[in-house]
Design a protein around this nucleic acid. Structure first.
Lengths: 349, 349
DNA sequence: CGGACATGATCGGACTGTCCGCACGTTTCG
DNA sequence: CGAAACGTGCGGACAGTCCGATCATGTCCG
């Protein structure tokens, strides 16, 4: 019994074997005599041997990648959807850039694949990934719920980069819309706005399980000095409906995705930014300069790659027993559609 | 220029130095001549050297704990709070069990520490963890916002097992209260309940940024066949306030933490489970048998350990640039306080 | 001026577990 | 009987870090 914890080498010496044989025996390699293996395992149990997990991870990676420069490849899978708004393309690109960067730092490469409609069939994707030896899949957001249940998930680890995926139910990475909207409203209040209004397309809120609307109402409910303006939630954006709502409830700041609303407000006599304001709920989706939330697609992509690589390093494939959602708050971004105040911090925690 | 990625040794050879000097130079050790250090750093940049994070983590552990046993160890840190409800103890225990189990599978051990009030000071904890060579910290939930900003976070990776921690702003793991309540309400609707009521202590909702209340209202708003009952949110539980609310709005099912409400409902003439129902929002906090949400502390603890170990394996310490929150939906659990229906699945997605 | 001592800069050794290739001895088979 | 195949075990190389050793130079004092 030595003072320090048993290692492979001390065990090997004690047994009169080489460290290699002990290592192989403990991991059940077929290269060692079953009798020897049992003897080693018994001795390891008795000595209380516990393998160093870090060294294990390091060495297997090291040995595997001998010579070759990169250690692994991830697939970024995009669903080609004809109805998807064009603006989403930039968001997708940023997601991929973030994933590529982080993956690169961790020794992985990212390759892009397009699936559905104008792209590959799911079967075809499956066989390509299999033959290329790719085991990590990042699924980019789809406007309608994507279906990749036909992939042979016993061989893949996957991450979805949006709130919810049911087919299959994978881990996901997403912006924290609820928290971000609360923080944005708080900021607007500190800038002196008292009647914020929310302007959304129904589908936009539905696919987030109404998180935008819920955060908006929760804020109104818990801030006595805020005058309640009912959210305007429409099936399709029309100027007419917006103008009616705006004139009736007279919000002093509007939060929404559709930047054309800035013009509609002006047409109603709003003075931006002196007396009224507009906040875009996803700045990455518009080119028009305005204040709003940066949903940080790069950070999301990076975190997605990180989670995926962690799974691969644990050698975990398949559909998780309990899928989790990892969220990151949006970053506040100033712009010309709001009056300036003494609010300083760039982060919206 | 070699085919494979540059290593410490290849760099050292190229520069005519030893690997030790190169390593020290790149990490800014005061032991090397500043001129040499600069030369090394320039060469490293040009060669595109990237240090292997796994090897770094392994070796620093190994060297630090020379002789003595290095095994991966995580610290589970609990804040001793006098006002904390007793029921929370069980939740904490389950969290730790989950973390221990998952950590064990990945080759790590978990040790418990109590901080504050009746336990260690933060300074003391810092020095204990340092001298024990522990770099992973799981923070258990505190009723009030915990403060561990005095720990030297350049040497630790941490995970908080509740929604929000600001001091410091770490990654966290938590139940998905918003999604879980929506799913529970959906289930109640499918069982025929039409007037659900929510009964909360204000602090319980505040510390979740009103997610319970927000999900409740979002559901009412988007389900036309549900009759709106205003939530009852109180500073302290009293029978009187509950009875007044219950008689006025006549909910047919009440969702809340406080199981004494079951008796109060009965006193008002409610028939449980034939015509009325009660749903507990955190079954792990009560011993009374009833239907409700299992927030799955074991799964949360397990996922927390997983995320923490992933950080350690990447040799990442410190406060993350963009803290993320990882959420897991609650599991629905049947019980005698609800009438049975034809709803089958155990999971609440 | 020379020896004792301090300081600065660099190096070597040892440490973890894994995987590939090699070696040695035995069995199989044409 | 010789060659090939197989079973089993071993050694080398690999990553980055930290402690102590080493060696050159500078400083101080008798």
């Amino acid at each position: 019994m030595s003072a320090s914890a048993p290692t492979l080498r001390s065990l090997a010496k004690q047994l009169g074997l080489s460290r290699t044989t002990v290592s192989d025996a403990l991991r059940g390699s077929p290269r060692v005599d079953p009798k020897t293996a049992e003897r080693v395992q018994k001795a390891a149990r008795e000595a209380g041997y516990r393998r160093n997990p870090l060294a294990g991870a390091l060495m297997s990676e090291l040995r595997r990648s001998r010579g070759t420069a990169f250690r692994g490849v991830l697939a970024a899978v995009d669903f080609t959807e004809p109805e998807r708004p064009d603006a989403a393309a930039r968001f997708h690109r940023e997601l991929v850039v973030g994933a590529e960067t982080r993956a690169g730092e961790l020794g992985f490469k990212v390759e892009k694949f397009a699936v559905g409609h104008a792209g590959l069939s799911v079967q075809r994707l499956d066989s390509i990934l299999q033959s290329r030896g790719i085991h990590g899949v990042i699924l980019l957001p789809a406007w309608d719920e994507p279906d990749l249940s036909n992939l042979d998930w016993t061989r893949f680890a996957g991450i979805y980069t949006d709130y919810i995926i049911e087919r299959p139910a994978l881990h996901s990475v997403c912006s924290d819309h609820y928290r971000s909207l609360l923080a944005a409203l708080q900021r607007l209040a500190s800038l002196g706005y008292r009647q914020p209004g929310l302007f959304l397309q129904r589908h936009q809120d539905e696919r987030l399980q109404f998180r935008w609307g819920a955060a908006f109402r929760a804020f109104q409910e818990n801030q006595p000095e805020i005058r309640a303006v009912p959210p305007l939630i429409v099936d399709a954006y029309t100027k007419e409906a917006f103008v009616r709502w705006f004139k009736k409830h007279q919000p002093d700041v509007v939060l929404g995705h559709h930047t054309a609303a800035i013009d509609w407000m002006a047409d109603c006599g709003a003075e931006i930014p002196e007396r009224h304001g507009f906040v875009c709920l996803n700045k990455n989706m518009t080119t028009r300069p305005c204040a709003g939330l940066d949903l940080q697609p790069r950070t999301l992509g990076a975190r997605g790659a990180e989670l995926l690589i962690a799974q691969l390093q644990r050698n975990e494939t398949g559909i998780p027993e309990w899928p989790s959602t990892t969220t990151i708050p949006a970053r506040w971004s100033d712009g010309p559609t709001l009056r300036t105040g003494n609010a300083g911090h760039a982060r919206t925690p």
